[in-house]
Design a protein around this nucleic acid. Structure first.
Lengths: 335, 335
DNA sequence: TTGTAAGCGTTATCAA
DNA sequence: TTGATAACGCTTACAA
């Protein structure tokens, strides 16, 4: 069965398509009786507006592109969920792509989104991304870009970031207060803003406490459980560490396993604090102290920011929202 | 800067838009030299095809709608990720909606997808859904529907399901072989096919071993960690259970906590097997034995099935793919 | 308040 | 091999 169009409704009612269009759009310049007749007939015919045609005519769509490294990572899936929760009631839909942490795929995805004439792009860039031309290109085509978590100031538009510095500062200060003073830091790539900021917070806390910052205590590219395990094992063997501040909960889990593997105990011998509050953090033994990264909050803010930028019809450049983080003290860091 | 169209390319080259369209579409009825000129000019002008216009004209889009209860649930986010991995290289994009397990939202989401003229819908229905008319409506509009995990035969089109029966059977048989014989079953709502099938597998294993099936040992609507904890506590207090087969890893975690809370030990006093292999299953102590539900595999199959249905231009009705599951034996079920 | 008519960018049909 | 033309379904000046 062919789908009904506004022409079918118009024909059935003896009015013109323009009148039907106005009635359906809630345009005030249409009589109440006509509107009612149109709405009734639309329901009767099972009319569903064709947003493809509408988008083409209006030159803009109700679709927002969302581009993340991986859909199935806890943090990102929560951000996506929150974004959808805000955008859907506002009449927007989500076209989702993943970059798989690859620059090439990120470039392709941006092209896909632009081809689809999305009204805006909400994104967090891949770990490989150091050149942002492909993203800036979108903004040049007047497609607003809202960045979250992994962001770069070269790209015009709002940025939603966690307070990574404060989170790291709180975590390390907490470890120091609890009697740990040879604190290693397992982290990711320094090309990514979030790890850079967490390292800065770590350094600040070390300085603040009058301790000596030792570069050898900072291990980059140790962010998975496997690498966390290996690097922690090496540091423990050198016998110079009594705590780990990890830039992610996965590496923190690896560190805990390395400690236990070495015949030592968490938190009595070595303390551990993670970052992210992954769902398993309060399930593992000992329960992991970690910095809560509010994915839901970020998603809500990113979505609202996008709605505002679209409504105001400006790029929203330079706006940076810093989402507060909390330190969740559990068992792994209190002797 | 206005975006270039095929008309701009045509004008610049002194040919007509039809020729440009054919050249860009890879149509054979275009001379090699013209095609090359068109491609060069397109690149020069930074031309991006307008798929909105193309979709309108062709009457179909390259967008597949995806509707799941919750984007941020581990299982679903993995399915989505896998679907995207297959669909993207095939030239399709994903428009994603979530029902939040609510029938009303599911109905709205279907309407949104139909309004957007998606080429097909890949979905898993909400826990509230017992009437499928809104989904059947899509198929009547010749929009193919591929269901996965939570499925219903009333809806025409392919179904991708886990081998829930076998998974449950394996799990319970394993518990029995390991010396447990008073096995309780914490599960979800019997309105959902997956829980029904797992219960059937449980019953089958009980019968097969010559044990007596006791309805009081099956607790419905105990699928979260909280409800799992509470219901397990009650059963333990009655002192009639020596193992739990849980239809989900969250309730299994709750059961473990209830056992420990009661001063008993897993697996020596009471054994536990879960279902899903959530990421925390191998991190918690004791490590949780569970049935692996291959979300990735399901996503791949669902996506391929959709591509096939679209290519063949038939609904693919009645095709049911059963994804094999594996029992992962860890610590929680071996004395 | 309603109608007329043009156009969004693309593609399919037919003719040259 | 290329061109002319119409059409996909909708919105919006402008006119009545």
């Amino acid at each position: 069965m062919r789908r009904a169009t506004i022409i079918d409704i118009a024909l059935a009612l003896g009015v013109t398509p323009s009148t039907v269009s106005r009635a359906l759009a809630g345009n005030s310049r249409v009589s109440l009786t006509t509107r009612q007749k149109v709405l009734n007939k639309a329901a009767e015919l099972g009319y569903q507006p064709n947003v493809v045609a509408s988008s083409l005519r209006k030159g803009t769509s109700d679709t927002i592109g969302m581009l993340v490294p991986r859909i199935n990572r806890n943090f990102f899936s929560h951000v996506i969920s929150a974004v959808e929760e805000v955008l859907n009631p506002a009449g927007f839909n989500l076209l989702i792509c993943q970059s798989h942490e690859r620059l090439i795929k990120e470039r392709q995805a941006i092209q896909v989104l632009l081809k689809n004439r999305v009204a805006g792009i909400i994104m967090s860039h891949s770990i490989e991304t150091t050149d942002f031309e492909h993203i800036i290109q979108a903004t040049r085509q007047r497609v607003p870009v809202v960045q979250f978590d992994r962001v770069n100031k070269l790209i015009p538009g709002p940025r939603i970031v966690n307070d990574n510095f404060t989170g790291a500062h709180l975590a390390v200060k907490h470890l120091i207060r609890n009697g740990y003073n040879r604190i290693a830091h397992l982290t990711g790539s320094m090309a990514v803003n979030v790890y850079q900021e967490r390292l800065n917070g770590y350094k600040y806390a070390i300085d603040e406490a009058g301790l000596v910052f030792e570069p050898s205590m900072v291990i980059e590219n140790a962010i998975t459980r496997e690498t966390g395990f290996e690097e922690a094992l090496k540091l423990i063997a050198k016998n110079k560490v009594d705590a780990f501040f990890c830039a992610g909960d996965f590496s923190a889990t690896g560190a805990i396993q390395a400690i236990q593997h070495s015949g030592l105990k968490v938190p009595t011998d070595i303390g551990v604090v993670g970052f992210a509050n992954e769902p398993f953090a309060e399930i593992i033994a000992p329960k992991l102290s970690t910095v809560e990264q509010n994915a839901y909050d970020m998603g809500i803010r990113a979505a609202k920011s996008m709605i505002k930028v679209i409504a105001d019809n400006n790029s929203g450049d330079g706006i940076e929202e810093i989402v507060p983080v909390r330190l969740l003290v559990r068992e792994s860091s209190v002797k």
